[in-house]
Design a protein around this nucleic acid. Structure first.
Length: 479
RNA sequence: GGCGCUAUCGUCUAACGGUUAGGACAGAGCCCUCUCAAGGCUUAAAUACGGGUUCGAUUCCCGUUAGCGCUACCA
């Protein structure tokens, strides 16, 4: 039975590297007809926050990749302690009574890797039991079998055969002196209990895996299969971090800018994994179908964001491509809450008229606010009269064009075809090029030179607004 | 410091040991066109370095360099 899990710790917002780990797990589960489990690894009571937990759920729900089962480690502490106790009873762990601060000093003096405190490791069972019974606090440490087991080996589905000398593995903690399990213990105990078949996680856990293999062995459990993912890094090569890179790496930043969940998923898939052919724009089903652990890379990948632009250009392009492929009525529905969220009152019918005009001009949903600002604003942003002057023309030509427009527009139906016919006729009547006719009108109604196609724009704006803006433009041009 | 991992265009990536080292994004140019886009075409751009093995190495091995990760009673 294929069972995978994503196990975030609620110590910050959901960042894109974590999101990718979730996505890869989800894809692997769906590809193999398995079960996707969400497990909150909240054994670090000191650093957990409710806000973080909320942010993680918010981000994951937005991805729209539903999971099948959900657990929280803090509900399962009994299980963790039972496993710790079993390992202790087998003599494969021992109590360490050295207070954390004192241990710190001892380790910093060590050359190479600190391995263990001999006094604690070799303490008699009687003394250990007596001190524990007396209530003296202790951490439980794993007794790494350096003599019996010179090497620990496992085969990683991505990185291949892995081996490490036990002489290089320290006696790591299983239980803290407050009785809480450490990540290593809790993670392994839960993976075993939840019958996780594949652990797919970040490469930062690759070297931890030797410890985990040790724990599984000590517990007498067959370890799951491991697959480690290369890390997502910043353009300077540093691991993506919440602290250093801030909200640019938060999933909610993408959501709030108007990424489509699937475009975001599509982008993240392509970073660190490849379908091995030239496909890039893929549907969810295509990705599920193509997904395999063999397609995952072994080197870190850069998310190409900048100071002034937090989004990788490819992610933006993927999103733009997805928006363009949407039926216009769907796009209008997506745009509506974005525009309204900016405090602009707009009716669905009007949004439906605007959507096809801006759809090839926006990459993110929020771009509608800038690309289509003149549709939403009652008053146009100030612009210079010079903007109204067409190519190879002058102010007089602009004025004639606008006055002609003011004359013919009131008498026609404001539909695309009627507008086009009227304005082309006007150009012919004035003896100027169509562009020289259209450009002053465009600037008059949009307030800038670069804008969506004119006739549809006039239609969406309506007769009243269009004529008012043409009138204002004429005023600008009058001496 | 110790241990581990990695290395193809600016970025994401493809290439049974034999390819003019392919694609995409971003860039440049041209076309289309009422502007801007979108679309089409064209273009520039890479195997980190040094040794092997081999008839032949981006591909296999070793070394160097660089980067990253772990080295917590964090996860």
């Amino acid at each position: 039975m294929l069972r995978v899990r994503f196990a975030p710790s609620p110590t910050g917002f959901l960042h894109i590297g974590s999101a990718r780990t979730f996505i890869f797990n989800w894809l692997y589960a769906r590809h193999g007809g398995g079960t996707m489990i969400l497990r909150i690894d909240d054994t670090d009571v000191e650093r957990n926050t409710d806000a973080s937990l909320a942010s993680i759920f918010e981000g994951l729900r937005w991805l729209d990749l539903p999971w099948d089962e959900e657990y929280k480690q803090s509900d399962r502490l009994g299980l963790h302690r039972r496993m710790a106790e079993a390992i202790l009873q087998k003599g494969l762990a021992y109590r360490d009574f050295v207070p954390p601060q004192a241990a710190e000093g001892e380790k910093s003096g060590a050359h190479g890797t600190w391995l263990f405190n001999a006094e604690m490791r070799e303490m008699s069972r009687e003394e250990s039991d007596r001190r524990a019974a007396a209530g003296e606090p202790f951490a439980l440490r794993f007794r790494v079998p350096r003599d019996a087991e010179p090497h620990i080996r496992f085969s990683d589905a991505v990185f291949g055969p892995q081996s490490k000398a036990t002489a290089d593995i320290e006696d790591f903690a299983l239980l803290r002196s407050d009785g809480m399990p450490t990540y290593h213990l809790a993670s392994c105990a839960d993976d075993a209990d939840l019958r996780i078949s594949h652990v797919i996680r970040g490469q930062d856990h690759l070297t931890n895996t030797f410890k985990h293999v040790l724990i599984f062995d000590a517990a007498g459990v067959e370890p799951p299969r491991f697959a480690h993912l290369p890390l997502l890094v910043a353009p300077d090569g540093a691991k993506l971090s919440k602290r250093r890179h801030g909200p640019v790496v938060s999933v909610t930043t993408y959501r709030d800018a108007g990424f489509m969940p699937h475009a975001f998923v599509n982008f993240l898939c392509l970073v660190g994994w490849s379908p091995k052919d030239d496909r890039e724009v893929m549907t969810r089903e295509e990705i599920i179908d193509a997904f395999s652990l063999e397609g995952i890379h072994r080197h870190n990948a850069v998310v190409n964001f900048k100071e002034d632009d937090p989004f990788d250009p490819k992610a933006v392009w993927l999103n733009a491509a997805l928006l363009r492929s949407l039926p216009v009525e769907d796009l209008a529905g997506l745009l509506l809450p974005f525009v309204r969220g900016a405090g602009i009152a707009v009716e669905p019918a009007k949004m439906a008229q605007i959507a096809p005009l801006i759809r090839e001009r926006i990459s993110l949903l929020r771009d509608a606010l800038t690309v289509g600002d003149f549709f939403f604003a009652a008053e146009l942003a100030p612009y210079g009269a010079a903007e109204l002057i067409p190519q190879k023309g002058d102010a007089a030509m602009a004025l004639r064009a606008l006055e002609c427009a003011r004359e013919v527009l009131p008498g026609i139906e404001f539909s695309h075809d009627a507008l086009e016919a009227a304005l082309r006729a006007a150009a012919a009547h004035l003896g100027i090029k169509t562009g020289q006719m259209f450009q002053p009108v465009r600037v008059a109604v949009c307030g800038r030179k670069n804008a969506p196609p004119l006739f549809g724009t006039l239609e969406a704006l309506g007769k009243e607004t269009s004529l008012a803006r043409v009138g204002q433009a004429i005023e600008k041009l009058k001496p």
